[in-house]
Write a protein that binds this DNA or RNA. Structure first.
Lengths: 242, 242
DNA sequence: GTGAGTTAGAGTCAGCCTGACTCTTACTAG
DNA sequence: CTAGTAAGAGTCAGGCTGACTCTAACTCAC
């Protein structure tokens, strides 16, 4: 695909090529402990460099699509996922992050709901890993995953990202589970409830979640702005329209 | 420099080219009112498209430099500025943001101290504008400036960016002026002082700012982490080392 | 040199939010 | 019917915030 060069001076002539990658997060119960934890899908490299190592899904940018559209398409093609939450993370472009032809990667991050995640393709070349146990990845992808985790935790405190992990209705305890899984520590249920109810972005429904072993909790609905809008109005426009 | 194409199908073959641009902010007193306000330098376009319109300083990415190094070099070449604070803002890559060859821009933002800003080149092709009165810019640069402003205000509340506008020592009133200029509203001096002193990132010196018309204020020194570190440890490493 | 003017900087106080904790309600499992 | 558990409401002390007052320290005008 990309030409290889015999020496450095030739390589320096080549303009850096552009790629789009995505870090996808989903919450699922750990199969051993049952505790809700963060997982992400990775794809196996089927060519050099880093043949057979796991890497973030990604691909090239086509001429007529926006950066965000390219991320969504690559995601669809490699993992069959179409997450509702998709946002730019960072552009990584150090000259040494890839051997041979230099690649600048514009990385997006996505959050998927459990039912979406269940539809994801899984085969010998696509698999899910616990976010804190991904092992050694291709390129600088370990660094990228760490950075995405940091951003996720930050953004969680800031606002409304948590609902991107949940369905259209949810119990307050489920929201708390999301926070606990992402932040990695337990939260006081009573205080958490009080804070959530004080925020305006949530409203109770008349339904209750039946079938549990205990008192059925009330279901709530998220009514705030689209979690993708980082409260900078035209940001989403640029990202999706162009 | 970049080839032009006669029709769309040819254009679609061309891989998008990459450019680095920077939004530079400095605080200076408004020449009319004397109030401290946000200013930024712009460069005049000396070629098509958007010939003669003002635009953000920028240029290509060279083969052996990191994204951040490219931003710093372009800054130096176009405005003679070498800001201490330089951080990635966003990658803009909509297919319609530039006529003819498609350009993906990785945009950085910089904060400069008043003495640094005074050294900036100014001629018929480089001039400073008040951040809220830049007029119509080339490409989507108005949108980019708005986004940078939004990020600056956000980041100000978050932490320690304010000190990037100030010298090595400063009075508490100067810090307050920075906040007032960026946020665009007055702050209570007494309460602001209390909050600053509560934060650990600042320590008093034994010096006082002489020469004012009134009681000389004590000078302080910033002792917190490098403002560029967004408290994600390896972030700065990636940006500068590679 | 003296008083007016101005800013530096400390202090007060009520209201809000927070974490830690208790108590009641409402369901399921046996 | 009883025990167990989670839902959900409430209490209370401490910290932070905004609004405000008061004193200290300097310069300038006269």
């Amino acid at each position: 695909m990309s030409p290889r060069y015999a020496n450095v001076s030739e390589r320096e002539q080549e303009p850096p090529s552009l790629a789009i990658s995505t870090v996808i997060f989903a919450l699922r119960p750990d199969p051993e402990t049952g505790v809700l934890t963060l997982w992400l899908p990775l794809v196996r490299r089927i060519r050099q460099p880093y043949l057979d190592l796991w890497a973030l899904p990604g691909g090239p940018l086509r001429a007529t699509e926006s950066l965000q559209d390219a991320a969504a398409r690559n995601l669809q093609e490699t993992t069959a996922l179409t997450p509702r939450y998709l946002e730019q993370l960072y552009a990584f472009g150090g000259p040494d992050r890839s051997p041979s032809p230099r690649v600048v990667s514009i990385v997006y991050w996505a959050l998927v709901q459990p039912d979406e995640a269940a539809l994801a393709r899984q085969d010998e070349n696509v698999a899910w890993f616990r976010a804190d146990r991904v092992g050694a990845l291709a390129f600088d992808h370990n660094h990228i995953v760490d950075y995405a985790l940091w951003r996720l935790r930050n953004k969680l405190e800031y606002g409304s990202v948590a609902y991107a992990f949940l369905g259209s209705t949810f119990t307050l305890a489920q929201v708390r589970e999301v926070y606990e899984a992402v932040l990695g520590r337990a939260l006081d249920p009573a205080n958490f409830r009080r804070q959530l109810q004080a925020s305006v972005h949530i409203e109770p429904t008349d339904d209750y979640l039946q079938g549990g072993r205990h008192r059925p909790p009330r279901l709530y609905r998220y009514t705030g702005p689209d979690p993708r809008e980082s409260s900078f109005p035209s940001q989403r426009r640029e990202a999706t329209e162009h």
